[in-house]
């Protein structure tokens, strides 16, 4: 039967091994995969300012991006492709709550420049290689 010291060895050994593998895989992802999959060369000042605005206003508190967020408002990874620049800017710059089908968005009333930054961020996000996410609908209505 398993002794206490064997159990401890299992815990410490298992942890050390899996953690080492995890660090190795993480390193590989960050060095070899992220630059190519996320088009790191396209991260210009506009995109970075857009990301800062995205965080500063907690957009993730309602929307999702890369599937991460709060599911109260639409997934925005492909919004640039889906809605186009004009629609996105109208929603961002609106002085009254944007409320398609009655569900309200905070009326941020962003400036033209801020809206452009956010559009740049969303356009960049739309081009990231997400291993096939979001899936294409495949059932006929």
């Amino acid at each position: 039967m398993l002794s206490k010291s064997q159990a401890r060895t299992f815990f410490l050994g298992g942890t050390a091994v899996t953690f080492a593998i995890f660090l190795g895989l993480s390193w590989n992802s960050l060095v070899n995969e992220v630059p190519a999959q996320t088009n790191a060369h396209l991260l210009n000042a506009e995109v970075v300012r857009g990301k800062a605005l995205w965080e500063k206003n907690n957009c993730m508190g309602c929307h999702t991006i890369f599937g991460e967020g709060a599911y109260y408002a639409p997934e925005l990874t492909k919004v640039y492709e889906r809605r186009g620049e004009g629609y996105i800017k109208a929603a961002l710059m609106s002085k009254v709550p944007w409320a398609p089908r009655g569900r309200k968005m905070v009326a941020y009333g962003f400036s033209e420049e801020q809206a452009n930054d956010l559009v740049a961020f969303l356009k960049w996000a739309g081009e990231v290689d997400l291993n096939g996410f979001p899936p294409k609908p495949d059932v006929k209505r």
Binding site: G14, T15, T18, F22, L25, E33, Q37, D129, N131, F133
Partner: peptide, 23 residues
């Protein structure tokens, strides 16, 4: 022991669709 053995590499289930590799 089981927690770390599965949970550390299990972090990978958050990495499926965020822009890192298929591994």
């Amino acid at each position: 022991g089981l927690t770390f053995l599965s949970g550390v590499l299990g972090t990978g289930h958050h990495y499926y669709y965020i822009g890192v590799g298929k591994i």
